[in-house]
């Protein structure tokens, strides 16, 4: 697979390591009420869709940036690649 890095252009997926569902960007607040349940929900259950999946890839052999890749889990086709920092900020995180 080729991942079209927003800054570096097309890169072999072998340069990356895979973390999983992009919902992992939204780590719960450990101090909030119900934090234990929120962490169980964050850590274990997954949507695991057959179809479009937003997922985190780390460019370990490259610029060490985190990317959010939108990929079809049935065809492996990649339709969108963004910097995870951009996505996190857009979704309300401070950084």
């Amino acid at each position: 697979m080729i991942i079209n890095h927003p800054l570096l252009g097309p890169c072999d997926a072998q340069e990356f390591t895979y973390l999983g569902d992009a919902s992992l960007l939204h780590r719960p607040d450990g101090m909030a009420e119900g934090a234990a349940d929120a962490f169980v929900d964050y850590s274990y259950p997954r949507e695991n869709p057959a179809g479009l999946h937003r997922e985190l890839w780390f460019h370990e052999q490259g610029d060490r940036s985190w990317l959010v890749v939108t990929r079809d889990t049935v065809t492996h086709e990649i339709t969108q690649v963004e910097l995870a920092s951009d996505v996190a900020r857009r979704e309300g995180r401070s950084r």
């Binding site: 997926a13 999983g20 695991n48 057959a50 999946h53 997922e55 889990t73 065809t75 492996h76």
Partner: peptide
């Protein structure tokens, strides 16, 4: 990586 394709790379 997550996959439902019954083939690999």
């Amino acid at each position: 990586y997550n996959s439902y394709a019954q083939r690999g790379n």
